[in-house]
């Protein structure tokens, strides 16, 4: 494997966003790119990352390899990179280590680190193609704000999408709270758009603790996409350049 990222910052942000949810995971490398899929310890949430080969320049992977990496170790090393550094990941065919090289484009500084790899026996889950009842795209910062505000009142949020809009509501010991967003197009600032595509109304309840955790990815993309269908996990997607993505799935809370 040899994969060169124009900005080390991208990988730093991705790992920073998921490191509290998953600790050890395999980075599956093949000629289409670098993928990661892992459940959190409680098996409530699933992280799915895809860094497409096109996100790297150049990208070369001659043989499929799984790099088992402890994310807190990876984060320690990524913190040694300047945000603007060029990052090159390298690994042999049957690697014991993954090699990270950081190059500054402005100075002649070159730093090099090896991280010991782990043997991780990870379950891989098949995620079915789903036609979601509601797909909401909104500013990532807005979603983060709503989750942070509501977790002050309750541990769960009900997300209800109707033709009127999308309503995030919660109730807790001190009282209730709700935030409603309607579809909204801002010609001057398209990054503030809220788009709600609905095939049928849907209402589901989720743990806010996980949603707040997913929102650590807000720095990766201006927009977040929420996809909901009755009684299936919520998909929270942050789209990256070159069709790469960071997706989180969260199992709902069901029944009374």
């Amino acid at each position: 494997l040899e994969a060169r990222l124009e900005q080390a910052n991208l990988l730093k942000k991705v790992v920073d966003a998921i490191k509290d949810l998953v600790q050890d995971c395999n980075f599956d490398c093949n000629d289409s790119g670098i993928a990661l899929q892992a459940m959190d310890n409680s098996h409530v949430a699933l992280v799915s990352m895809m860094l497409k080969a096109e996100s790297f320049s150049p990208f070369r992977c001659d043989r499929n390899i799984a790099l088992g990496i402890n994310l807190s170790s990876l984060m320690k090393v990524l913190r040694c990179a300047q945000n603007e550094d060029i990052l090159t990941l390298k690994a042999d065919d049957a690697p014991d280590v993954v090699n990270l090289v950081f190059e500054s484009s402005e100075s002649d500084r070159l730093s090099e680190y090896d991280i010991k790899l782990m043997d991780i026996d990870q379950e891989h889950l098949g995620i079915p193609e789903t036609e979601y009842s509601a797909t909401i795209s909104m500013p990532a910062a807005e979603f983060q704000r709503i989750c942070r505000d509501l977790i002050a009142l309750s541990e769960s949020v009900a997300i209800e999408a109707t033709k009127e809009g999308v309503k995030f509501s919660c109730s807790g010991d001190i009282g209730n709270g709700a935030v409603t967003l309607r579809s909204h197009t801002n010609v001057e600032k398209p990054e503030l758009n809220v788009d709600i595509a609905l095939s049928e109304p849907v209402a589901l309840t989720f743990s806010l603790k996980y949603l707040v955790n997913f929102c650590k990815a807000s720095g990766l993309s201006g927009t977040v996409k929420l996809c909901l269908s009755s009684e299936v996990p919520l998909l929270v997607e942050y789209t990256l350049a070159s069709n790469s993505y960071l997706r989180f799935y969260l199992a709902p809370k069901i029944g009374d």
């Binding site: 098996h43 379950e123 889950l125 098949g126 079915p128 309840t205 799935y249 199992a251």
Partner: peptide, 14 residues
């Protein structure tokens, strides 16, 4: 109260 579901209830092992 509502019960937290597990992700593996929805996505099967491959």
């Amino acid at each position: 109260a509502k019960k937290q579901q597990s992700i593996s209830t929805f996505f099967a092992k491959t």
